[in-house]
Amino acid sequence: MSTYAFIVGGVLPGIAALTFIIGMTYRFRVWSRTVQPGKMTLFPASDNTIKAVLAEAVFFPGLFRGDRVLWMFAWIFHATLALVFLGHLRVFTGLVDRILAAMGLSADAIAAMSNTVGGIAGVVLLATGIMLLIRRVTLQRAKEISGLPDFFALLLIIAIILTGNMMRFGPHFELEQTRVWARSLITFSPAVPQNGLFLTHALLAIVLIMYIPFSKILHFGGIFFTQSLIKRR
């Protein structure tokens, strides 16, 4: 195994996971412990705060009313991202497969479904990601507030999507390898797939995972805190 592959596939995943878990735990703890004197309810507010906050986190209704075009891109982008995340879990753990198999789907059917859904998701994600980028450079009100961190986060995610798509649509890559790899990580005896594209994809994803606790991508956790502040009666 090359040193590069060993570092990317054997060493960094552990560091990234630790950074992410410690970083996020730290953030959440600090956030929940920081004092908030007084209320700041924003009306109309529903009686069921938890439901309202969850709805906001899943469907972005506020954004829907505020900027419909952005809502469309942002919602499709995030929803697909969530789907792709589940897809990766499936590849790594086989858990979803077992559930689907229990529902009576054959292995071939599952693979075909994964190919179709995953393929479409990859394309949609790339398209909406690029739309968000275009919006950021062309729309005045977004352009004038965009800084390097905003472009970095978006470009990084687009690069990850791109390499992921290349793996799917390029020369055949046996997904089973990644399942072996994921299992090998837990037993501390890394078996890293020797595939340039895979390694690039993994490296970029690792950078993203480590970057999250220090960046505005924190918003995926922060939203629950900020939304409950204004939705709490």
Partner: peptide
Amino acid sequence: KALKLYMEICAKC
């Protein structure tokens, strides 16, 4: 809390 979070999570949308 509100202010602290506002400093950290604006997505610049």
